[in-house]
Computed example of a mutant assay.
Amino acid sequence: MKSFDLAEEQMGVRVSIVRGGSSKGLYFLENDLPPAGAMRDAILKKAMGTPDVMQIDGLGGTHLITSKIAIVGPSQRDDADVDYTFAQAEIDRDVIDYSGNCGNISAGVGPFAIDAGLVRPMEPTTVVRIHNTNTGKIVVAHVPVKSGRARVVGSLAIAGVPGTGAEVFMDYSGSIGAKTGKALPTGAANEAINLEDGRSLQVSIVDVANTCVFVRAEDLGLRGDELPDEFNTDVQLVSLMREIRGKAAVRLGFTSEWKNVDQQSPFLPFVVFVAPSANYVTYSGQKTKDEDCDFLARLIFMNRMHEAMAGTGSMCIASASRIEGSVVHAVTQADARNRSTLRIGHPNGVMNVHVEAKPSNSHPEGVVFERLGFPRTARKIMDGTVYIPLETIQNV
């Protein structure tokens, strides 16, 4: 990070705004920021405009899926090309969380690294081995390249993003046990969580790409096709999901008391409620037919419903669909359990992911994953300089 004149009122930091999948974030070169710590966090929060529901004094877009950050630099590992740290900036709380990864933002890392000169471009496809520092796992991006730059134009359409783009295939087969080291951290494909109101819920806790706790929509009195505005304004429902997340977090060792989960583990685990496929209307007003998807899934993170589907969440969902006895396996259409393409119905449409697994007695989850990944598109929107008032960091 370059030095600055203390007589100035603001410092400038290079930044790119990149849409990765159905999320959008600020992408920084690691050398342009201070080392991990309070000063770096202060810069990132000010750049995003956190905390403020409007993020009016920063570059954030007032939604969690547009309040994401990628920090990218040369890798310190021999088996990777770049190191990538994901940061989730809260909106209305003074929080930067590094506990998990974001699959959509990950999709922008390969193209960003190629365009920044961190990876040598190879046509027609450049393979970028990405070490995600949050989880310690390697994610492999297959990036289309033309004339030394990551391609943008293509025919792939993904739900939640207008138009089409060049396909970036993200290989997550190396992300099993991303946070805990095990696909089934508690050793069970399903287990009971007892709620404070006396109810008992059957859930599945799975850790692939990011840690998720799965529950059937019908067990919560839900349809499964709820949309973000309906969920986010229901105080009782949000509180219920926080309790489920908190009690799963206790079992995972992420927090010592479920009521403290927002303070001690604000990002993980995600809560995902699932239901059999059905006709529904998407967040953008489009009609989706039940035959277009294999089941419905709604992902909750930081106590809000994802407007589409988290990339890492889709990988955990896909893995759970192959684990016999899990909540997700139970709602997955029988023919889809053996297909390599799984179709997840989320609030803004259908996401296709690739999963191939075969039975294995040597793995606790009963399967070994041979292929696990998803296609995304990514596009750099802006290169520029974000200005940070020096008073933001002078007292850190």
Rank of each mutant, 00 (worst) to 15 (best):
M11Y: 02
R151S: 15
A178L: 06
G165K: 01
A297M: 02
N104P: 13
R129I: 01
V152K: 11
A42G: 07
I393P: 03
R379I: 14
Y387S: 14
K259Q: 15
T392A: 10
A38V: 09
P124S: 13
Q264H: 15
V215S: 05
A278L: 05
F301E: 01
Q286K: 15
D290Q: 15
L201A: 10
I114Y: 04
T312V: 03
D79A: 15
C102E: 04
D335Y: 02
P124H: 14
P74N: 10
V250P: 09
E230Q: 11
P121S: 15
E324R: 09
I56Y: 13
A36D: 14
G61F: 06
V331Y: 06
A297T: 00
V206M: 05
P34V: 06
D234R: 00
I323K: 02
M11H: 01
D207L: 12
L44V: 14
S362I: 13
D32H: 10
I344S: 07
D81M: 08
G187I: 02
D335P: 11
R337Y: 08
Y172W: 04
N232V: 00
L237V: 00
K179F: 03
T211E: 03
E365F: 08
F374G: 14
A116S: 15
G349W: 01
E370N: 15
T186S: 07
I114G: 04
V143M: 11
T385G: 05
P162H: 14
V206R: 02
G177A: 11
I91D: 02
K68C: 06
K45T: 07
A278F: 01
A36S: 10
K24G: 06
P162Y: 13
Y172L: 10
P389N: 12
S75Q: 03
E191G: 07
I205P: 03
D207N: 10
S99P: 00
T125K: 09
M302E: 10
D335H: 14
E370H: 12
G325F: 02
A38C: 02
R40H: 04
D79R: 14
A36K: 06
S16V: 01
G20N: 07
E291A: 14
P121Q: 09
L44E: 09
A159E: 08
T377Q: 05
S340Q: 13
Y27S: 03
T164R: 13
T125A: 08
G49F: 05
I158V: 14
S75N: 07
T125M: 14
D115L: 09
E30G: 12
I56K: 10
V250K: 03
Y280R: 07
G49M: 07
E123V: 07
H346M: 06
T85P: 00
R339N: 13
V331A: 12
N194W: 06
G103A: 09
V203M: 09
